[in-house]
């Protein structure tokens, strides 16, 4: 190391900051910690409410799906009942008609000597 390098070294030697430097750093650190805790609380609260809203939305969706399924099932049942009722009615009509035909047939006077 020659003369000018030594001169550089001397000029660039470490020096101490003001005496209250550490306390000012620590003040900033404390302020940061407090802010961070406050922020953490806000974040936790927001996360919790987000979770609540998410579950509420899921619940509402599940409830509406269940309701839709039940309503659809009832409508289906009613439709099937109506179809069955109509079929029964038709069947009864047919049976009634046949019975009427049979009764008419039985009551009709037969010619003499005809054996059934």
């Amino acid at each position: 190391m020659d003369q000018y390098e030594l001169e550089l070294k001397r000029m660039l030697a470490r020096r101490e900051p003001a005496s209250d430097f550490t306390s000012r750093v620590m003040e900033q650190v404390r302020r940061y910690s407090t802010d961070e805790k406050r922020e953490q609380k806000v974040i936790t609260f927001q996360a919790r409410s987000r979770r609540v809203w998410r579950w509420a939305a899921v619940g509402a969706l599940a409830a509406s799906l269940t309701l839709a399924v039940v309503v659809e099932q009832r409508r289906n049942n009613r439709r099937q009942a109506e179809v069955a009722e109509a079929q029964l009615y038709e069947t009864l009509m047919l049976v009634g008609e046949k019975m009427n035909q049979a009764r008419t047939e039985i009551r009709r006077p037969r010619p003499e000597g005809v054996v059934q």
Binding site: L12, A13, R14, R15, E16, P17, F21, T22, V25, M26, V29
Partner: peptide, 15 residues
Amino acid sequence: AFAELVEKHKAMVYS
């Protein structure tokens, strides 16, 4: 302890 750490390196950082 963090303050101790600041104290230890402050001359280097500041300089």
